[in-house]
Computed example of a mutant assay.
Amino acid sequence: MSLSAVASPQPVAELYREHHGWLHGWLRRKLGCTYQAADLAQDTFVQALLAPSLDEIREPRAWLTTVARRIMANHLRRKELERAYLDAIASHPEPLAPGPEERALITEALCEIDALLAGLPARARQAFLLSQVEGLTYAEIARRLGVSLSMVKKYMLRATLHLAGIVKP
Rank of each mutant, 00 (worst) to 15 (best):
L40P: 04
A41I: 00
Q42W: 09
D43Y: 04
D43A: 14
F45E: 01
V46I: 15
L49Y: 13
L50D: 11
L50G: 09
L50T: 11
P52Y: 05
P52A: 05
S53Q: 08
L54E: 05
D55A: 13
D55P: 05
E56L: 13
R58Y: 07
P60R: 00
P60E: 00
P60Y: 03
R61C: 11
A62Q: 08
W63K: 07
L64D: 05
L64N: 04
V67I: 14
R70Q: 14
I71G: 03
M72P: 01
M72I: 05
A73R: 15
A73F: 15
H75I: 10
L76Q: 08
L76C: 02
R77K: 13
R78E: 14
K79S: 12
K79I: 08
L81Y: 12
E82P: 09
A84V: 09
Y85H: 13
Y85T: 09
L86V: 09
L86A: 11
D87Y: 00
I89V: 15
I89F: 08
S91G: 10
H92T: 14
H92R: 12
P93Y: 02
A97L: 08
P98K: 01
P98R: 02
P100M: 02
E102Y: 05
E102M: 06
E102A: 07
R103P: 09
A104R: 05
A104E: 08
L105Y: 07
L105E: 13
E108F: 06
A109N: 06
L110I: 06
L110G: 09
C111Q: 13
E112W: 07
E112Q: 13
I113Y: 07
D114S: 15
D114Q: 10
A115K: 10
A115E: 15
A118H: 08
A118Y: 04
G119S: 10
P121R: 07
A122G: 07
R123G: 02
R123L: 05
R125C: 05
R125Y: 02
R125D: 05
Q126E: 14
F128R: 07
L129E: 15
L129T: 14
L130T: 00
S131N: 08
Q132A: 01
Q132L: 00
Q132I: 00
V133R: 10
V133Q: 08
E134C: 03
G135H: 01
L136H: 13
L136P: 12
T137N: 06
T137F: 05
Y138I: 00
Y138H: 08
E140K: 06
I141G: 14
A142W: 01
R144E: 10
